[in-house]
């Protein structure tokens, strides 16, 4: 199996598991009156680890799975999440943030973008019911809850994808620094 095919398989499995765990467990747990939303966290993590194109593709398919499994309007989640994944990927490609707390900040920003984007699309499609200002509070609390989950989610996604990821120059540099050379063999 080629490296890109292996990565695609792993991304597919992660996408399916994300939607399944979200629907079956996470959505049914209420924390401070809201439920955590794993989808933007996972999509942003993939964008940070793999780049803009895999991030966007992951966002599209996670959204598609979620809309299909929940019998929601197809295309809404896909549109929002693909933009989230693309943005996270571009952040990696342009800035290459190395701070340990980057996943937390990106997770919170991705959740904010997804929540606001989802609400905007709903408004564009038309809402029959009155919309309460408490929606803003819900969005804020969701961002906080998701920010708390961002680091462990990123670690899990990284662990799942790492064997299929191309060699990361930063990781190679770090290893060279620790071992005092390019590799243990070159040291010898």
């Amino acid at each position: 199996m080629t490296p890109s095919a292996a990565l695609a398989v792993r991304l597919g499995i992660v996408a399916l598991l994300t939607v399944l765990v979200q629907i079956s467990a996470v959505s049914q747990v209420s924390l401070l009156g809201v439920s955590a939303d794993l989808s933007p966290l996972v999509v942003a993590s993939v964008g940070l680890l793999c780049g803009s194109v895999p991030g966007a593709v992951m966002g599209f398919f996670v959204g598609l799975f979620a809309d299909t499994a929940l019998l929601q309007t197809l295309g809404v989640s896909s549109l929002v999440l693909l933009l989230v994944g693309y943005w996270a990927g571009r952040l990696r490609e342009l800035r290459d943030p190395a701070h340990a707390l980057t996943p937390l900040a990106v997770g919170a920003a991705a959740t904010a973008a997804a929540s606001i984007g989802f609400s905007l699309v709903q408004f564009l499609l038309g809402v029959d019911a009155p919309v309460s200002l408490l929606l803003l509070r819900d969005i804020l609390v969701t961002i906080l809850v998701n920010a708390a989950l961002a680091m462990p989610v990123y670690a899990l996604v990284r662990r799942a994808l790492l064997p299929a990821l191309p060699e990361d120059p930063r990781r190679r540099r770090r290893r060279a620094y620790v071992t005092g050379g390019l590799s243990p063999i070159s040291r010898a």
Binding site: G63, T68, L71, G75, S78, L82
Partner: peptide, 28 residues
């Protein structure tokens, strides 16, 4: 990016316009 955005908008438009017995609803 353009392809995925176009695909999302296509899905949204078709799904919104079709009846409950349409192909996308049946797929769901």
């Amino acid at each position: 990016l353009v392809l995925l955005v176009a695909a999302s908008l296509f899905l949204l438009t078709v799904y919104f316009g079709e009846s409950a017995g349409g192909p996308f609803h049946a797929l769901q």
